[in-house]
Simulated scan of single mutants.
Amino acid sequence: MPQAWSKKRERQYEHIKESAEDRGASERRAKEIASRTVNKNRAQSGESKTASRSSVKDKSPQQRGGQRSGKNGPKGPTRDQLYNEARQRGIKGRSKMTKKQLERALGR
Rank of each mutant, 00 (worst) to 15 (best):
Ala20Trp: 04
Gly65Asp: 03
Asp58Trp: 00
Arg36Gly: 09
Lys75Tyr: 00
Ser54His: 07
Arg108Gln: 13
Arg23Asp: 14
Arg29Ala: 14
Met1Arg: 05
Arg68Gly: 13
Ala25Pro: 00
Gln12Asn: 03
Trp5Tyr: 13
Arg36Ile: 13
Asn41Thr: 05
Gly65Arg: 01
Arg11Asp: 11
Gln44Ile: 03
Asn39His: 14
Gly24Met: 09
Ser6Glu: 06
Lys40Trp: 04
Gly46Pro: 12
Gln67Ala: 14
Gly70Asp: 07
Arg108Glu: 15
Gln62Gly: 02
Arg9Ile: 02
Lys75Thr: 09
Glu27His: 05
Gly24Ala: 03
Tyr13Trp: 06
Ser52Gln: 12
Glu47Val: 04
Lys71Asp: 06
Lys17Phe: 02
Thr50Tyr: 12
Glu103Gln: 06
Pro77Gln: 08
Leu102Asn: 01
Ile91Glu: 08
Glu14His: 10
Ser48Arg: 13
Arg68Ser: 15
Ser48Asn: 10
Ile91Arg: 12
Lys59Val: 08
Lys59Met: 08
Thr50Arg: 14
Asn72Lys: 09
Lys8Ser: 09
Arg104Trp: 03
Leu106Ile: 01
Pro77Gly: 05
Gln67Asn: 08
Lys99Ala: 06
Lys92Tyr: 09
Glu47Arg: 07
Arg94Asp: 13
Lys31Gln: 14
Pro61Met: 06
Ser60Cys: 00
Ala105Cys: 07
Asn84Gly: 15
Gly46Glu: 09
Gln101Tyr: 01
